[in-house]
Design a protein around this nucleic acid. Sequence first.
DNA 1: ACCCTGTCTTGCAACGTTGCAAGACCCCGA
DNA 2: TCGGGGTCTTGCAACGTTGCAAGACAGGGT
Lengths: 332, 332
Amino acid sequence: MASSLRDVAQRAGVSVRTVSNVVNDAPYVSPATRARVQSALEELDYRPNLAARTLRQGRSGLLGLVVPEIDSPYFAELAGLVADAAERSGATLVVDQTRGDADRERRLLSGPSGQFVDGLLLSPWALSPAEVAGRRQGVPLVLLGERYDPSVDHVGVDNVAAARTATAHLIALGRRRVAALGLQPHLVNSTALQRVTGYRQALAAAGRPAEPQLEVPVERLHRVDGARAMRHLLALPDPPDAVFCFTDELALGAMRVAWERGVRVPDDLALVGFDDVEDGRWSRPSLSTVSPDKATLAEVAVARLLARVGGSDEPALSTTTPHALLVRESSA
Amino acid sequence: MASSLRDVAQRAGVSVRTVSNVVNDAPYVSPATRARVQSALEELDYRPNLAARTLRQGRSGLLGLVVPEIDSPYFAELAGLVADAAERSGATLVVDQTRGDADRERRLLSGPSGQFVDGLLLSPWALSPAEVAGRRQGVPLVLLGERYDPSVDHVGVDNVAAARTATAHLIALGRRRVAALGLQPHLVNSTALQRVTGYRQALAAAGRPAEPQLEVPVERLHRVDGARAMRHLLALPDPPDAVFCFTDELALGAMRVAWERGVRVPDDLALVGFDDVEDGRWSRPSLSTVSPDKATLAEVAVARLLARVGGSDEPALSTTTPHALLVRESSA
DNA sequence: ACCCTGTCTTGCAACGTTGCAAGACCCCGA
DNA sequence: TCGGGGTCTTGCAACGTTGCAAGACAGGGT
């Protein structure tokens, strides 16, 4: 059984309060007492009870990160970086996934789990902006990804500009028919919406007509979805010679299908992804991609959240973090 | 500010205890009272305080998963499955990473974070068996991966047998020189130790001599380590025509290097990995691999942990979960 | 009219911690 | 010798919740 302050106090022959003072490095504890308490602490292997501490102080020292899928490479990498950033700031991060389930997002946002963390980083998927804004009760909240609601802090890249750059790059390669892969018409306010906007802007800027059949929707953002969409594109009467995929995972699925069908990348088909996940650096060919500065994003998000936890009540801030187009073999 | 039972009680004109009864669906609450309390609960948007509940009952309903790296595909996929399994069992999972830092493993194991979860799933990396066995104080612990200490529950695959099968498969293909990639001589008790044992057993069973220069060590288990090791192997006077990589990540790094050097996979070089991560299914060529049944592993581990949390004190159990060799293009 | 039983509601205490403010002690200077 | 100031230690209360056991009330049987 875990020992409490009282056990230690009894053993050291002092009051509970004094033990607490020693544990918390409070001033005004005589060296003799401190030493005696210290050894009692060690003998009993005392560990503070986080529940009691949290109840008393209203602070747990924990931050929560909620992502749709912890096993997708992008979110996994992001989670790793956020955990590192939190660690550097002296906070501990706990991670949760929702599998894109609105109920689960709700539960994590306002349920018990939301009660024991001091603040929450949320990468929303299924929840509507209004709900996000309304649900955040008490716990400071920072959104990752695209902006949802002006009353909530937010950190993310400029998806429209990034998509525009990626598309423009493909056009500059001299490609005639540039497709967009990864629309998610069933989600309101999704990142895909912003990326397709950037894609269209780039086409328009180049004087190209929009071709709806080159904009391919997907159910989710996994490789299998990219593969399916690519098969669809290759079956068109006049298939594209370049594809901007809204995530690297989609692109990697698409790339595999291209290979299976004998379509050479990048000669017959140029590919650009989005996210700069590790896999794309090692694929064959390596994958060109829009690389969001995930480390900065994590750093900024944690800093913002900790500021809120610390009581900052400046108006909600929307921070745009840098991104860069990395041209690799798939669109060289 | 969050509202408490007392606030709700005041508003509904009942005692705190009655509100608690309604919240917890206790019997013996008259329909009228229940209704009145219910509406007060909703008006005040009451959420139980997890810290207080935990303090009172000594249970938080949270399980913890501690892995070395949350952004490595294997652990990410495992974390996702464990979270799903926990969800199905009505528990919430929180995930933590240690970056292979022994101090961080220690802290998570016995520090505050270990105090607010009801049980811990740990995938150890840097900690010695003795320390793991000793540190687990109070919180039930289940180890994932290889067995550490007979006094601690454990769930994992039979690494020796799996490595033997993978190596035997390469030998059966008619390969002359089968290398092993991924030794970690700096870690005691590591998974790599078991896999190299299986590798050697398979060689011995085929009457092949052990060739130390074909056993390549790595620092960590990422693609970059696999790439470096592969360059080393290809620089040997008599390079291998088959490589058993101890993880898929290592294999994917190795595969990329083979391609860069003009070594054809599988014609010139057969490759087998371990873990069956998503990437290997979509790589070019797709990666043969030992596939541990991660879903079962997650399921069993969560069930075991929940049984312990429920108070089971049967002797520590070591469960071996199934695995299968998946032959794909890289060793067809 | 009485008690008993079953239904419903309540007060008290405790989980382990820390903020607050007062108490105890000691040393120094007046 | 006494007061004052600093140093060190302590008791009390409270955070929000639930286990426990008793209280209150109504209805039915005697």
